[in-house]
């Protein structure tokens, strides 16, 4: 090691130095935060204290915060007046609960174990259905994308089944599966499976062939190629599929719960209608929206964590 290092100094210093010089500009750009900090400190000493920086950030963010609040405030105000005066102009607000009623019911439900259980059941169905769809969709997508035989044997079946919406499977699912619970999970699975499968196939097909050749030259086996090159190369597309799949999974789940469920937040919302607890309908809708948002956010976070190289490339693109 010692000799190698000193040899390096003797032998390669000229090349190294010239290399540094010619490739300099690009390198300076790489540590971006430092460059930003340097620019800030030189531009004005006043902006360099933390308090001032936060103040500056608030000033720049304030207009957006204000317009967002205004937009939401106007929406709630419309809701409030429409329900208060029971507007009836083709659209009827006569039976719609007011914001106040919704808040009152929400306060009660906060202490209801049954309500939390409904949320838990829906989330569990999503996790299982979406989880199985992810494993199967990615695995089959890799095979279909990479191997002609797999494509010839499997793809026609999937192409035939794909246009059928998951909801259309409800009666069939009830006959196929032993319990209501499994058929609802199956519907959730179906909804997310196809977006994940198709995006994975697309991802595999768009892998740069030179990367496959490089890996083969480095001694990669067929399985190593699939796991260490094709999978990571397709990962951005796979995550697009997961994000879409998560959305469709919720759509399918809620519909399935409304039709054939016991428990679950979709069932809760439909039950509220049957029991004339109209405020609970709104709460159900809001909870569905928030849970869906959280799940999509989770997918995005997972994507960022699993694809750190993508963060670097988008930073490079923004500058």
């Amino acid at each position: 090691m010692q000799t190698a290092a000193s040899l390096n100094l003797d032998g390669e210093q000229p090349g190294g130095q010239v290399g540094g010089a010619t490739e300099g500009p690009k390198l300076v750009v790489a540590p971006k935060p430092d460059a930003g900090a340097a620019a800030a400190s030189t531009s004005s000493q006043l902006t360099d204290t933390p308090v001032r920086r936060i103040a500056a950030w608030l000033r720049s963010a304030l207009p957006k915060v204000l317009t967002t609040m205004l937009s939401l405030g106007l929406f709630v105000a419309f809701w409030y007046f429409a329900t208060k005066y029971k507007w009836d102009f083709y659209i009827r607000f006569t039976n719609i609960p007011s914001p106040g009623e919704v808040l009152d019911n929400a306060a009660q439900l906060m202490h209801s174990d049954k309500f939390y259980n409904n949320m838990y059941v829906s989330l569990r169905r999503i996790m299982i259905g979406f989880g199985v769809a992810t494993v199967l969709g990615v695995a089959l997508g890799l095979l279909i994308g990479q191997y002609r035989v797999a494509k010839a044997m499997l793809f026609p079946v999937f192409e035939t089944l794909r246009p059928i919406p998951a909801i259309a499977w409800v009666p069939m699912a009830i006959m196929l599966w032993p319990s209501n619970e499994t058929s609802i999970v199956f519907i959730t699975f179906l909804g997310s499976f196809f977006p994940i499968l198709l995006n994975t196939i697309h991802g595999v097909n768009s892998v740069d062939p030179v990367l496959l050749r490089a890996a083969r030259c480095l001694g990669a086996t067929e399985f190593g190629l699939l796991r260490q090159v094709v999978l990571p190369a397709a990962l951005p597309h796979i995550f697009t599929g997961l994000a879409i799949g998560m959305g469709v999974a919720w759509v399918s789940l809620i519909a399935a719960e409304m039709i054939s469920g016991q428990y679950g937040i979709g069932y809760f919302t439909w039950e509220a209608y049957s029991l004339i607890e109209y405020a609970d309908i709104v709460i159900g809708m809001i909870v569905i929206g928030v849970l869906g948002l959280l799940c999509s956010g989770g997918i995005r976070l997972l994507g960022t964590a699993l694809m750190p190289w993508m963060a670097g490339s988008t930073q490079g693109g923004q500058k």
Binding site: L211, W309, S313
Partner: peptide, 17 residues
């Protein structure tokens, strides 16, 4: 292809991930 014949391509062929 085999690892005893190393190859360098014209296009950059590093694994981006």
């Amino acid at each position: 292809p085999s690892a005893d014949r190393g190859m360098v391509f014209q296009q950059y062929s590093l694994f981006p991930w």
